[in-house]
Amino acid sequence: MAKILVLFAHPLLEKSRVHSKLAAAAKKVKGVTFHDLYEEYPDFDIDVNEEKELLLAHDIIVLQHPFYWYSAPPIIKQWLDLVLEYGWAYGRGGVALTGKFVLQVVSAGGKQELYSPEGRNRFTFRQFLTPFEQSFRLCHMEYLSPYVIHGTHRLSITEIAEVAAGYAQLLTALQTGQIQPEQLAGENYIDGVKGLIALNNSLHEQ
């Protein structure tokens, strides 16, 4: 039974098509703590001690956010800056988070093809996420293959509902231990639009 903490960041959820559904789906999964950063800290005034305790109380940290300017909404950066303290999360004696897993769940407007040396965005998605990956590595955490939902601009309402259901399935599987987090490690890249099917496929390939 893994304890999952979803750190969610969306500055304008009321207009969001995808994340509103994803968030609603994640909230319903048993054993998942859903932590809405913009709702909790509209002033960016993050309660560091509270956040640290949340981290310590969970095994898998899910970072769920839209992809803006090839990165996360600013409150995530603020969170990283404040919560991952030297001497606690990294540096001398900073071992509090050792062995925990991080899963980034990101939505992007552009299709997957655009994120390649030939595509308009010139780099792969995984390359854009390297700052996050390295930050968590520095904190002795295991960075799992990111779960990316591409082409959100073109998803229909029914498609979005399916994507949300897939996301909920993933969380449930992780929570119940049906999927071990270690199985998601490595240089993989999970296509969130295809949901659990893609995940199962990639697991079988391994």
């Binding site: 304008l12 207009k15 969001s16 098509r17 407007g109 601009h153 073109r154």
Partner: peptide, 13 residues
Amino acid sequence: DEAWDSESLREEA
């Protein structure tokens, strides 16, 4: 609000 999830951006994309 044109930031973040803008309708027009979506249409253009």
